[in-house]
Structure formats: C-alpha cells, structure tokens
C-alpha cells in the first residue's frame, strides 16, 4: 500500500497526472472511491478486500474526465475495463496511468498500457469462482426452473438503473431504454419491462463484460443480474474465443466474426 501511495504522490507531485482515483475508507466500515488532486492527500489511499467497486466507471463521468490525465488504482477488473474503454475510444490511452493491483493485492508499477496487456495475457480470466458456481448450478437446472428463478428475481426490479450506472461499459449518452422512437423497452418496471431491460443489458454487454460483478453489487434489491452478463462472457469465450478487456484493439465478440463460427442451430 505504501508503494501505491508513494507512486500516486509522485505522479501528482511531478504533475504527470491531474487526478488519482483510488479507494479510501468510507463510512460504516465500507471502502469507497476517492478522487485525489493534492499529493499530500495520497495517504488516504487504501487497498484491501473491501475494494470491490470497478473504478473504471468514473473514467466516463463528465466531471471526472474533465480533470485530464488520470491515474487509477486498478485491480484486474479495472485494468480490463480500461482496455475495453480504450478499444471503444472512450478513454485515451495517453491520459491514463494504471496503478496496478495484483491478484495478491500487491502494487504493480506498469510503465505502459502495452505492459498491462501483456500482464493480462498471462492471467486466467474466467468468472470469479463463487459466481461461476452459481452459474453452473443454474445451468444444471431445467429450462423451466431457470425461467422460474429469473422471473422471481427480475420481477422485483424497480429500474433504478444502478446496474447500468455502476458498469463502466454502460456509457451511452442515451441508453436504449431512454429511446422512445420507437419505445424499444417498456419503460415501467413491470415484469415485461424488467425482462426486456435485463435482456437488453445482457446483450449489450455480451463480449464486453469483464466479469467485475459490480452491477450485481450495485443492485439495491440484491438481484443477481451480474450472473447474466458473466454467463454471456463465458459463452462469448466458448463460442468465439473472445475475452473482453484483453487488448486495446476493437475486436469485441459481436463486432467481428469468423466464417466458420459454429452454426449447428441454423437450419
């Protein structure tokens, strides 16, 4: 942690970056995002197992972007998110300094984004195990049981869109749910509207989800919606061999194809 603080301080002091985004101690024993402009305040930075929020979400935020060059405390999922955002032209590579955090919690000093790419290429990128266990359980159910499961879960949704707001990959100016010509998604939070919304979110994240699970954590009603996008992340890998957030190139699952993609379901 000292290394992290030291590096953050250096970056701010040398004016290599204008802002450091990291974690600090929040209220009631929670960890939360902190935005540091003053090198003297880098002592606030922490990193521990409570630091689960995907900070990359702030890179799209108007007020944060405004600061210019940003250093960001980045465990694996944040690094991957940054690569997705670079590949989708949302973040400029030269504006971001990655303050890497290894899977063991150690500070990783990355010289460039290319090194980040290389680092990620050597790390297994499946879903977090506890989530994958539930996904496997769901997959083992009958179709009927799964439908029942999701119907019960999604019925509760009241469309606060915390899932959307928490996701770094949901950065559209106007989300499709807000598009009313035509009205693609039933706006009210009734069972159909909820199903449509979550289908939409899942499809839009197919091949782009880095399995950080923040959507699920953000849900105030504990609906495990992160399982939907995580399952799709796994499917995209199995079907197309693509994992999101591994390179700065725009090669996400649904914007590319291979002539020999599997098609046994097509008559």
């Amino acid at each position: 942690m000292d290394n992290l603080r030291k590096k953050a301080k250096e970056l701010l002091e040398s004016k290599s970056v204008d802002l450091v985004i990291g974690y600090e101690n929040g209220t009631n024993g929670k960890a939360r995002a902190v935005f540091i402009k003053d090198p003297e305040k880098t002592g606030k930075l922490i990193y521990d197992e409570r630091c689960k929020q995907n900070l990359a979400v702030y890179l799209n935020k108007h007020e944060v972007k405004h600061y210019g060059r940003i250093a960001i405390v980045a465990p694996l999922m944040v690094m991957r998110s940054i690569l997705v955002l670079i590949s989708e032209c949302q973040v400029k590579q030269e504006n971001i300094t990655v303050l890497g955090i290894g899977n063991d919690g150690s500070f990783l000093d990355f010289q460039s984004m290319e090194v980040v790419e290389k680092y990620i290429s050597k790390i297994p990128l499946g879903n977090p195990e506890p989530d994958q266990v539930i996904i496997d359980k769901l997959n083992a159910m009958t179709m009927e049981e799964r439908r029942e499961f999701w119907q019960n879960e999604l019925e509760r949704c009241f469309k606060c869109y915390a899932c959307r707001a928490a996701c770094p990959m949901c950065y559209c100016l106007r989300c499709t749910v807000e598009c009313n010509q035509p009205q693609w998604i039933s706006a009210p939070a009734h069972p159909l509207g909820n199903l449509e919304w979550h289908q939409l979110r899942t499809m839009h994240l197919t091949g782009r989800c880095v399995s950080c699970g923040d959507c699920g954590r953000a849900c105030p009603l504990n609906i495990p919606i992160h399982l939907l996008t995580m399952q799709q992340a796994e499917e995209a890998f199995h079907m197309f061999g693509v994992r999101a957030g591994t390179s700065m190139k725009a090669d996400s699952a649904l914007s590319t194809y291979k002539p020999d993609d599997k098609e046994n379901f097509i008559l």
Partner: peptide, 10 residues
C-alpha cells in the same frame, strides 16, 4: 449469426 448465437445463449 454471432448475434443469434449470443441471443440463443442468453
């Protein structure tokens, strides 16, 4: 085709 595969999976 990719879109449908993903949609099917979902």
């Amino acid at each position: 085709r990719r879109r449908w595969m993903s949609y099917n999976a979902m």
